[in-house]
Design a protein around this nucleic acid. Structure first.
Length: 782
DNA sequence: TTAGGGTTAG
């Protein structure tokens, strides 16, 4: 809402410049009444009550420049740049405060170029002006410009020095921060804390502690920095020790501990500290709520949300993301619609919920809505929508986004850049992917992996290898995904030629990711190699095998059909096999059709993890794939009777050019008693979108007697495929036949979309499909 | 009533 009335009034005033007299709309000597009202404006703005502030402003008979400044600062803090701009122009006699505030508004609204222009034309620059430039450029990752303004500043105060220090720290330039720090001695507590926080943030706890011990005087922030540092690293013992030792605590200290316990899954401890807090603010409540959200205890979270006395945007966002992560998209949307105010996080969270849930239409719809609301599109929103474009192979839309991204002045960092790469590859546009990759300002391991996988999947093996070679010249360390990808590539294209060279390059790094190596061997069927690595890991590298390594080995042996050896390994282990290991064995028994061992493994899993819904579904599907429909039904009934619920969710994984793997969880609605309820829901949705409901058509190749069971177990996936493939009305998907894709993908089928000729593989997602490279866990690749 | 350090949500 534009407060057009006061703006017009102000503009009028400005055009008929009259000398300021007592009682004029802008008096140079504000009275007590004006000061009091200015404070009220600030209070409203701080609480996000922009309209209230505007009403007050409009109703003021006399205003001072500070009145305008208060409004200006409020607009900036509430993200209303256009209003701030208009108001600034209407200020009768802007002072240094006005200029600095508006400069700050421009800078925080990502209009850095505008901020620089304003800075140049400012009649008077004081140290605050320079300091705004230093910190705002740092906030956008432009450290060298921060340094430029820092060097330019004629007089540097404590804020300038600390601002520059923070500029380095926030951008990970910890060495430069240290050099600056060592270059002089007049630092205050804020400086010490800033550098210390930098060490904490980048995981260098020893250095942080060293500073903590050395600093001349510690304030409550110093203690908080250390407490939260340990808490975030999961070292709750040390965090608690410092918390107990702290001479002063404030709400930050308490909240850091609550959130530490929460993030490490120690719910009871978190609650105990939370209940003992002498005073709580919104952040404390949010931290406790986040604890429940993290454990998917949405009812408990909602309870807190309902009773908390002070809700802020983050509280709403916490609930929103909680519902989204629990797959409760309708609840998430309800929260989103009810929010008194939305910020960038709210939009991003809702977008992420839709895009990660595969709801492409909804994602794009919401994105449009976002534009209509004039909401600033941040990096996260860009990434979500880009990944949706990738899902539906919407190249044009993706390229438009790329353009907008550049226009918005964002540097292409990893977050958005990776989404961009994925989009180009999924659309088969190798050249633009390469360009985007080269233009990326920074690259992380995911960027490299995306490039390797992208090239490999389109059959550009040589290019993929070149990327891998280039990656080795950088400081980015290959991770498990790189290894798996490389092994896949190597196996598909080069038949084991490069494997030893590749591995030796991996071993150059200090910390070999052994799980990655073993998983990679398991995946590429390199059984003997895997076994020898497993032993050399201990003998040559002195690494003691942990349960996860054994799990890999059981998986590896099992897949190779060496079930007895896998069993023996489990017996000889220094610890009891856990459910993951039995699960791996269960998967292997399936591939090799050893139903006796499968049953045994399944029983063990149920014993150890009666709550594991994936197991029931897996076993049910195993029976179904053998045609033992009654047993399959029994498993589902048992799951239902025991009140076990599946975590819903599904995702797309692009595998090869124009080939998609689609994984869908069996129950996308939580209370599924029978699959038909779900089908009905999809039917309605699809019809609404103009698709044919053509389960019969889809199943035309399937024999009559199988049809009923097929419907029960597989048609939900067909239906979803319809929605996602965007088959136009009247164009059925053709089933190639009840084709098993591979031993492990028991419910996988191939479909060809009649219209696009896309080959689609559908399969279940369960815990055994834990490899993200699109390979089946049985070791087959697509 | 503008600029520098510590807590929550994406």
């Amino acid at each position: 809402m534009l407060p057009s009335r006061h703006l017009r009034a102000a503009a009028r005033q400005r055009s008929h410049r009259r000398p300021a007299i007592a009682g004029d709309a802008c008096s140079s000597k504000p009275d007590v009444e004006v000061i009091w009202r200015n404070k009220a404006i600030t209070a409203h703005m701080r609480a996000g009550r922009v309209p209230d502030a505007e009403r007050l402003f409009d109703a003021m008979p006399r205003r001072s420049t500070s009145t305008y400044n208060a409004m200006l600062a409020g607009y900036a803090a509430n993200g209303r740049l256009p209003l701030a701009r208009a108001l600034f122009r209407s200020i009768p006699s802007p002072d240094a405060f006005s200029y600095n505030t508006f400069l700050h508004s421009l800078a925080v609204s990502s209009s850095l170029a505008d901020a620089r222009a304003l800075f140049e034309e400012m009649p008077v620059k004081d140290s605050v002006s320079y300091n705004v430039m230093i910190s705002s450029h740092a906030n956008h990752g432009l450290v060298s410009l921060s340094r430029h303004y820092f060097d330019l500043a004629p007089q540097k105060d404590a804020v300038s020095w600390n601002g520059m220090l923070a500029a380095y720290v926030r951008n990970g330039r910890i060495r430069e921060a240290r050099n600056l720090f060592d270059s002089r001695t007049e630092w205050d507590a804020i400086s010490w804390n800033a550098l210390m926080a930098g060490y904490v943030q980048w995981g260098q706890m020893a250095e942080a502690l060293e500073m903590f011990n050395r600093m001349p005087q510690r304030d409550v922030v110093s203690w908080n920095t250390m407490v939260s540092g340990y808490a975030r690293r999961g070292d709750m013992v040390e965090a608690r020790r410092l918390f107990d030792a702290a001479p002063v605590r404030d709400v930050f200290t308490w909240t850091a501990v609550v959130s530490g316990y929460a993030q490490n899954g120690m719910l009871e401890e978190a609650r105990r500290v939370f209940d003992a807090m002498p005073e709580k603010n919104a952040v404390s409540w949010n931290a406790m709520m986040a604890a429940y959200v993290q454990q998917r205890m949405m009812e408990e979270a909602k309870e807190l949300f309902d009773v908390m006395p002070c809700r802020d945007v983050a509280s709403w966002n916490t609930m929103l993301t909680g519902y989204a992560q629990a797959g409760m998209l309708e609840e998430a949307r309800a929260i989103f619609d009810m929010m008194p105010q939305k910020d960038a996080v709210s939009w991003a969270a809702m977008l992420a919920a839709y895009s990660q849930g595969g709801f492409s239409e909804e994602t794009l719809q919401l994105f449009k809505e976002m534009g209509r609301c004039g909401e600033w599109v941040n990096r996260s929103a860009f990434a979500c929508v880009l990944s949706t474009c990738a899902d539906i192979a919407a190249l044009e839309c993706g390229m438009q986004l790329h353009g907008r991204l550049i226009k918005a002045g964002y540097g292409v960092g990893c977050f958005v850049g990776n989404a961009l790469l994925a989009m180009y590859f999924k659309c088969g546009n190798m050249e633009d992917a390469r360009k985007a990759f080269e233009e990326m300002e920074e690259k992380d391991v995911i960027s490299w992996n995306t490039m390797i996988a992208g090239y490999a999947r389109h059959g550009f093996g040589t290019e993929a290898l070149e990327v891998f070679d280039k990656m080795r010249t950088t400081s980015t360390k290959p991770d498990a995904i790189t290894l798996v990808r490389f092994f896949v590539l190597e196996r598909c294209l080069f038949k084991s030629i490069f494997v030893s060279g590749m591995l030796s390059s991996v071993f150059k790094y200090n910390n070999v990711d052994w799980v990655g190596v073993l998983a990679a061997c398991s995946h590429s069927g390199l059984v003997e190699k895997g076994i020898s690595y497993f032993y050399s890991m201990h003998c040559n590298f002195g690494v003691t095998a942990k349960p996860e390594h054994y799990t890999c080995m059981i998986d590896l042996l099992g897949r190779a059909g060496r079930l007895d050896e896998a069993l023996n390994l489990m017996k000889d282990m220094p610890f009891e096999p856990d459910s993951t290991m039995w699960g791996a064995l269960l998967g292997a028994s399936r591939i090799h059709r050893n139903s006796e061992l499968g049953r045994r493994a399944a029983e063990k899993v149920f014993e150890l993890e009666p709550e594991n819904a994936g197991m029931y579904v897996l076993l049910s599907n195993i029976y179904a794939s053998y045609g033992k429909w009654r047993d399959a039904d029994n498993m589902r009934t048992m799951m239902h009777e025991r009140g076990v619920k599946k975590v819903p969710g599904f995702s797309w994984i692009e595998v090869q050019n124009k080939i998609h793997t689609f994984s869908v969880s069996d129950s996308m609605h939580p209370e599924k008693e029978d699959i038909y309820a779900f089908l009905e829901y999809l039917d309605i949705r699809m019809k609404k979108a103009g698709y044919v409901s053509a389960t019969d058509m889809v199943l035309h190749d399937v024999e009559e007697e199988e049809k009923e069971h097929m419907l029960k177990y597989h048609s939900e996936k067909l239906a979803v495929a319809y929605g996602i493939l965007k088959i136009p009305p009247g164009r059925p998907i053709r089933v190639i036949k009840n084709l098993r894709v591979c031993g492990d993908c028991h419910t996988a089928f191939k479909y060809i979309s009649a219209i696009e000729g896309r080959l689609v593989i559908l399969r279940d997602s369960n815990r055994f499909h834990h490899f993200r490279d699109g390979s089946c866990s049985c070791g087959d690749y697509w």
